[in-house]
Design a protein around this nucleic acid. Sequence first.
DNA 1: TATTGTTATACTCTATAACTATA
DNA 2: TATAGTTATAGAGTATAACAATA
Lengths: 138, 138
Amino acid sequence: MPGTPSTVDALVQLSFTVQLTLTRIAAENDLSVTQLRLLGILRDRTPSMAAIAEHLDLDRSSVSGLIDRAERRGLVERVRSETDARVILVRATPEGLAVAESVGTDVGTRLERMLASARPTDLAAIVRLADALPQFPV
Amino acid sequence: MPGTPSTVDALVQLSFTVQLTLTRIAAENDLSVTQLRLLGILRDRTPSMAAIAEHLDLDRSSVSGLIDRAERRGLVERVRSETDARVILVRATPEGLAVAESVGTDVGTRLERMLASARPTDLAAIVRLADALPQFPV
DNA sequence: TATTGTTATACTCTATAACTATA
DNA sequence: TATAGTTATAGAGTATAACAATA
């Protein structure tokens, strides 16, 4: 009984539990989940506005506002591309990086604690599933 | 290697994939994810405003607005409780129920399709995990 | 012409604080 | 006093449409 209702229900429930954890950690740091995701991206990249939009599956106009607010808070900065004058690159500030590190550690700690009682073989299944599934749904 | 980074990463990624699916299905039906969840709750219940707030982990004032908008669109209706004059119960209209059914089927279909290539034993693990984990995180 | 990013606008979602009505 | 719900307000997030600058 592979793709049964109970499987789908479990997946949705699991997803909301994770999202609620992320929402709370974000709120504790005065951030939204979207800002959290943004900082996660900027930990190891300096992407263009367009690349961020694609990554977050948002319209470019939404990203403009997102970066405006993050910039106003000193978390990121806009940098002109030197090879294409149309392009704006977004880079985390030192403070932004510090917040990203701290929040990332927090997420790890909280979710690991949540998983503490689970069977190791079930956790291995999660990793296999995430690898097998398309990151962007059809 | 139970609660390792890779496990946490997989869980977060899985969660965002599911959320993206839900967001898209909601958008196709001109709904938000929150309205989707609301309709899901009202499929088999007629809860009070306070009960909805608890279920969705929202402030009561947020639920007031949520129900305002759903009511304006003819999806739900407010009903006075007959046992406590302070309480307002929320009931899905026939149209709201129809939308809830349709969307519910859609979610099932899309997620099952997404899971089609997964191993049955991994899906069983998902169900066990969802059962074992606290629905409301610590 | 096509692409990148912004702005104007409008809406949903959310919380805090102050309020009314009922228990 | 305590609880249920609403309103006013403020801000974040999001999309669509129209725009300017650059390729």
